[in-house]
Design a binder for these strands. Structure first.
Lengths: 338, 338
DNA sequence: CTGAAAGCGCTTACAG
DNA sequence: CTGAAAGCGCTTACAG
């Protein structure tokens, strides 16, 4: 194959030479400062015509180097395979683009080591700021970056000890509502299935669960607490479900702190002979389209992925432009109670 | 908020000044040309120590401007919401990173206008090459870019008239195998559900279907051909399923050319009273984990997302480095026949 | 109304 | 063994 990858693109310099004016003039006109610098309308037109005829576009690199801003934001998501994150990613990309920004996207795969490497990499690439779904046990480096005042937005998860801008969902409130609806549906022994319980979000969701139970005079007893942390492994889940059914045979409600647990637990329950289409009521944080097929009456708090992504961009751009903004953003979930 | 976004990072120049050597020397040492340029070991060590102590990293922008390569690739996927594409995206990002490249990611949302805009944008940003899942009706601009010899890799879809590098799955062969397995399972009236039939991939899948039927002495009759193109709307699908069941009440096999149709059609069939768990056999191109819950015996040809993404990067990088590479890459699907 | 010049932070031929 | 100088393609204070 021939190397023809290089563009035969036109430069500021060549425009200036062709037109017999200085690069300054061309730069001013094409960056919209023609009026301001009172370049004659005729000249302006001439330059603009020439530029558009030759499809001129400034070299972003040179521009960025000079202006010290790349109009690029770095995005680090925990996972791209999870539709939740890819949906957020989509929203970030779209909103960024609407504002003339591009997104350099990476995945940390939930590794805090990778997270550090990626932040460094993105900074060396001179992105203007970073949006990050932080890993559970961030390294000191993250603190350092925040303390430096680097433009960083925490997305979906908030690390309370870190004084930084964040955009998260109202995990506790939504959980409270969901579990409340299970109670109203008549459930009395409501199991909670959760994972990575040490993660801030999961704790908030647990708190909502506990408070809703307390509020109904019910107890969040330990037998009902099913933490299937670690590598969400099918065998582990079956084991946990088995134990639950032995300890609480009359369990009549299920609250999932995350959509990823719904299907595996559902399968395990079915395998163990639990009447999944019986009288139990169900609720989960975030759902996927297929869930409504299996459990049409499940109550859902849909995480506002679209808004989480968009808001993160908005906040970051405001910060970059020295505009006022809220550093604490808690967005409501879309509740669909049954 | 204070603007502290700027890094107080150290530059080549400041290292050189601090150490009393020229920028040339520093640059050589830090870019690994110390030996080659026979800089004294003592000096090399001194420079390296200083650099790592101050955590120096060259400014990527300046480097790129000079070297005329950004070590960045542009990725345009049709959609990020679809797990198929986000899984490909993940693979592209990972493989690129392994090779010191970053990915600027965008979505065309299947609009050929957006596609053109995005390609232009990415080129102005000086990406080294672009990986693209092309829209169905690409604009002339795409041809032009290809003709210029720009480093472009078509991912997942191939536009036969375009002489360019592509990485796709063996759509026809896999479809042939899938439908063959339906026949072996005893199905005789096998409906095909497809969408965007004008799209190359879909035609290939149809061809596989037709040939498998012919091969079994069966007819690909028009009543069995269910094209639910357009905005895959639930009402439309229900209507199409209704017609199918009226025209071919004894339909006993279903072949889906894409995973996105499985759930909606399944729901529609159920609503219309078709015994979805009866004797019919099922097959689809690409599946999602939940499918096995609903249709455990469905035969599946899983598209090799991981490999599609990785191969695209490999091919693009080879092209960038003037290495030999295959411009036509057809990857096998992972067949799971029942 | 317009231009010469410096500078963004690197790399690398060229010269000693 | 090492450095002065030019250049990547822009933008913008400064000077007329």
């Amino acid at each position: 194959m021939v190397n023809a990858g290089k563009r035969s693109s036109i430069s500021l310099k060549s425009i200036a030479e062709s037109l017999g004016v200085s690069r300054t003039t061309v730069s001013w006109v094409l960056s919209g400062q023609g009026e301001e610098k009172s370049i004659s309308p005729a000249m302006q037109q001439k330059i603009k015509d020439f530029a558009s005829k030759h499809n001129y576009q400034p070299n972003f690199l040179a521009r960025s180097l000079n202006l010290r801003r790349t109009n690029t934001i770095g995005l680090i998501v925990s996972s791209l395979a999870d539709p939740f994150y890819s949906s957020i990613a989509k929203s970030v990309v779209t909103r960024a683009e609407e504002n003339g920004y591009s997104v350099m996207m990476t995945t940390s795969e939930s590794s805090s080591e990778r997270e550090v490497k990626l932040i460094e990499m993105l900074r060396h690439r001179q992105v203007d700021g970073i949006i990050l779904t932080p890993s559970q046990q961030p390294k000191d480096y993250l603190w350092q970056v925040v303390n430096e005042g680097y433009n960083l937005v925490m997305l979906d998860r908030n690390i309370p000890e870190l004084e930084t801008t964040y955009v998260v969902a109202d995990n506790k409130e939504s959980s409270y509502e969901l579990v409340g609806s299970l109670v109203r549906n008549g459930s009395r022994k409501i199991a909670i299935f959760t994972t990575a319980h040490d993660l801030g979000n999961m704790q908030f969701r647990y708190d909502g669960y506990r408070e809703a139970l307390e509020n109904a005079g019910l107890e969040a007893s330990p037998e009902l607490f099913c933490d299937v942390s670690g590598s969400i492994d099918k065998a582990d889940i079956v084991k946990r479900v088995d134990r639950l059914l032995k300890e609480v045979p009359d369990v009549d409600g299920f609250f999932f702190t995350t959509h990823v647990l719904v299907l595996p637990v559902y399968i395990a329950l079915k395998e163990k002979g639990y009447p999944t289409n019986g009288g139990a009521s169900w609720a989960c944080i975030h759902s996927q389209p297929e869930f409504s097929l299996l459990l049409p009456n499940m109550s859902v708090a849909q995480l506002p992925t679209e808004e989480l992504g968009a808001r993160s961009v908005d906040v970051l751009l405001k910060s970059l432009n020295h505009e006022e903004f809220d550093s604490r953003n808690v967005l409501g979930c879309d509740l669909r109670l049954h």
